[in-house]
Amino acid sequence: MIALLLRDLKIAVRAGGGFGLGLAFFLIVVVLVPFSVGPQSSLLASIAPGILWLGALLACLLSLDRIFALDFEDGSLDLLATSPLPLEGIVSVKAAAHWLTSALPLVIAAPFLALMLNLPAAGYFWIVLSLLLGTPALSVIGTFGAALTVGLKRGGLLLSILVLPLYVPTLIFGAELARRGVNGMDTQTPLLMLAGITFATIALLPFASAAVIRINLR
């Protein structure tokens, strides 16, 4: 398992694109927002948590189709499926690799982009916390979507259509947690719900992902 994680990380680092593209996309989305809604600092500050969450979510989505596509094309997925590693473990590792290479850089970049949106000082902690807590769920849910569409010819667009509705609860509680934190409101409920969603998806969804991979490899 650890070998697989290290291999995926190594490949992502050597290919280079893994970190860069998602981050660049996140940056561009955030930069485009003031152009579309106007430059008033107060307006930007009030919508900053939502913009950062939406940007991070879309940037995550962008890299989902690569979770299994390369392994499927070069035959590694067949070989992994016949290896001693349980498929549930393989999909969990894939989700972890996606989080480390695609989502974690976004979490780290978020405070810097928040600066450009005039986020109040109290908000930085909550932005980072909510993203740190919520993005693992995005990676795990996205891995399920990637597993569903592996091997499909027009998989990319279909993947988005399948995954985005599944992202709704995570987005609602994540952005709500950030917003409430920024405004100094009670954060307990969204915090618990977000953590609950993340841990429940990490614990349960790999079984569904492994099942659909088996179906797709047949």
């Binding site: 609860p169 609602i172 509680f173 709500e176 409920t189 719900m193 969603i197």
Partner: peptide
């Protein structure tokens, strides 16, 4: 889950 989230 979405139903509860939206309610909240």
């Amino acid at each position: 889950l979405s139903r509860y989230a939206v309610n909240f």
